[in-house]
């Protein structure tokens, strides 16, 4: 079923249709989200205007985890069911996830300095997030380290699955241990503890980042599929002439 649904040829047709939609959604969500976040949303009763960093920090951190989860699912499907498109989806997600993790760490430092009084602390949340960044970098290095692409994919897929233990650690670090980082404001039992005037720009920016991820994923997947085709054609020509 998966084989039929996600054949590369079918993907090329479907992605061609989806690409302009993802581009449009990214721009639209980001435009409204930025306007609400930077202009309309009020200052926080405690943190003042500095709260506006939240509208990129939190969506970037969510995407860092979302991309890793997507990568782990794709890697598992690739390893177990040997689906080539899943392998390529994992490979195409890694740079986007790494970028979002970096941005979450950077904007977090920019927020931490004025509010906490420090750019960085080695608490459980910040440290586990840094580990996630290194997992992404490790994956990217490993997937390109082999002459045989299939072996690179296999080794790096195992790394992604092993590293997945870090995802629940990141999510629950703020509940399991004392941390300087605050506990969850939105995804928590009892509903969000964040006023709707601040929740809307946050959710819109999260949608913008999600649409952006899908946009870049489609672009990179198309590129990988065509690169594979080029490789096959070159091999065929070498063997034909030999």
């Amino acid at each position: 079923m998966i084989q039929k649904f996600a054949s590369p040829a079918r993907f090329m047709r479907l992605s061609q249709v989806l690409l302009p939609w993802m581009a449009g959604l990214t721009v639209a969500f980001a435009a409204v989200g930025l306007y609400l976040g930077l202009v309309v949303a009020p200052a926080d009763y405690q943190q003042g205007e500095s709260v506006r960093i939240m509208y990129i920090h939190v969506p970037a951190a969510w995407m860092a985890l979302f991309c890793y989860a997507a990568m782990a699912i794709a890697a598992a499907v690739g390893l177990i069911w040997k689906h080539p498109l899943a392998d390529l989806a994992a490979k195409s997600t890694a740079p986007v996830g790494a970028a979002f993790t970096f941005l979450a760490l950077f904007t977090g430092a920019m927020w931490g300095k004025p509010m906490w009084g420090t750019w960085w602390v080695w608490d459980a949340r910040l440290t586990s997030m840094l580990v996630l960044f290194f997992l992404y970098l490790g994956y990217i290095a490993l997937v390109n380290a082999f002459d045989n692409p299939a072996r690179g994919i296999k080794a790096s897929s195992i790394l992604v699955l092993v590293g997945f233990v870090n995802v629940p650690i990141i999510k629950f670090s703020v509940e399991w241990w004392n941390t300087l980082h605050q506990p969850a404001s939105v995804l928590k039992i009892g509903g969000p503890s964040i006023h709707s005037s601040m929740l809307w720009p946050l959710l819109l920016m999260a949608l913008a980042f999600t649409a952006y991820y899908l946009w870049v994923l489609l672009l990179r997947l198309r590129g990988e599929i065509i690169a594979n085709k080029v490789r096959v054609l070159r091999l065929r020509r070498v063997h034909g002439q030999a």
Binding site: P42, A43, D44, Y45, Q46, Q47, V51, M54, M115, W116, G117, T118, V121, L180, Q182, P183, A184, S185, K188, S193, I194, H195, S197, M198
Partner: peptide, 18 residues
């Protein structure tokens, strides 16, 4: 030697808090 502030997970405008 160092004092850091820790804030909670509540976010709202000042009027709402008041």
């Amino acid at each position: 030697a160092e004092v850091l502030a820790k804030h909670d997970e509540n976010y709202m405008p000042p009027e709402v808090a008041e």
